[in-house]
């Protein structure tokens, strides 16, 4: 399956390998594996390398997780340490209920 066909397209904005960013990425991967297995793709954008991309998605805080697809766009900022908040934020139905 190519990227375009995935149901969930997530983008994580980070700025270098800061602990917060690493935590966020780690948390995100964990939740996705758990709830969206096989249906997602995560794109990590390091703004230190691509600062010009910050404006497009209105990135302010780091780390920021953006749900590109499904629409509408959603944003979660922070290290994503609270699982239920992230799931609510992304509007993911938890599987193990």
């Amino acid at each position: 399956m190519s990227t375009k066909e995935k149901k969930w397209q997530l983008r994580l904005y980070v700025a270098g390998n800061t602990p917060k960013s690493m935590t966020a990425l780690h948390n995100l991967r964990k939740y996705c594996e758990e709830h969206l297995q096989g249906q997602y793709v995560i794109e990590v954008i390091d703004l230190l390398e691509h600062p010009q991309l910050a404006e497009g998605d209105q990135i302010l805080a780091i780390p920021t997780l953006v749900r590109k697809i499904p629409a509408p766009m959603r944003k979660i900022i922070g290290d994503l340490s609270n699982e239920s908040k992230v799931l609510v934020g992304l509007d993911i139905q938890p599987l193990n209920h």
Binding site: Y13, A15, T18, K20, T23, A24, L47, A54, I59, L60, A61, I62, P63, T64, M73, R74, K75, I76, I77, G78, D79, L80, S81, N82, K85, V86, V88, G89
Partner: peptide, 12 residues
């Protein structure tokens, strides 16, 4: 539009 969870900064 924005959910907050955990630590963040305004590096963006």
């Amino acid at each position: 539009e924005i959910q907050e969870t955990g630590e963040y900064d305004l590096e963006g």
